[in-house]
């Protein structure tokens, strides 16, 4: 009686194993249904989603002008302190002094890509970039200055 049960269990297990194997066999013989992506070989064709959050970037136009007024709303909105904006008083042509950004420091190593700074920005000076390959050999390189050298505020952005 015990032996009978034992052997029936053995055959049942083999049967259920074969049932599973049939499925793997199906995919083995139908390679077109395999969905694996060959990263990094497909780098040339790889396109991230429009809203993908890879890093914070500050777009500059062809005149090397950005839209950041230095209001520091993003710095307040950032939960991790990964944004540090250093401002200075700049003399304007009309003789008045106005607050302008000196350096826009972005600590990529602290950033969690939560998008709260982008939401907070009143002038859409910063956006999320698509680049996600951030590995570097020295972590000092993860501290970035987003405003380009010599750049200035676009006219009409207040």
């Amino acid at each position: 009686m015990f032996l009978k049960e034992y052997f029936s269990t053995v055959f049942k297990s083999i049967g259920s194993l074969l049932k599973g194997m049939r499925l793997t066999g199906y995919y083995f013989t139908h390679p077109k249904e395999i969905v694996t992506e060959q990263y990094p070989d497909n780098r040339a064709t790889l396109k991230m989603a429009d809203r993908f959050r890879g890093e914070v970037i500050m777009p500059h136009d062809e005149l090397n002008e950005h839209r950041c007024t230095g209001c520091q709303a993003c710095e307040i909105a950032c939960p991790n302190g990964s944004i540090k904006i250093i401002t200075q008083q700049e003399l304007q042509p009309d003789g008045k002094k106005k607050k302008r950004i000196d350096t826009w420091v972005y600590h990529l190593d602290l950033c969690t890509m939560c998008n709260l700074c982008i939401e907070a920005c009143p002038t859409t000076a910063i956006v999320m970039g698509q680049n996600f390959e951030h590995s570097v050999f020295d972590k000092k390189q993860l501290k970035k200055i987003l405003n380009k050298p010599g750049s200035k505020l676009k006219d009409g952005v207040e």
């Binding site: 269990t9 049942k12 297990s13 049967g15 259920s16 194993l17 049932k19 599973g20 499925l23």
Partner: peptide, 8 residues
């Protein structure tokens, strides 16, 4: 097919 009915 893969797991639920498997005896093991």
């Amino acid at each position: 097919q893969l797991l639920t009915g498997n005896v093991i």
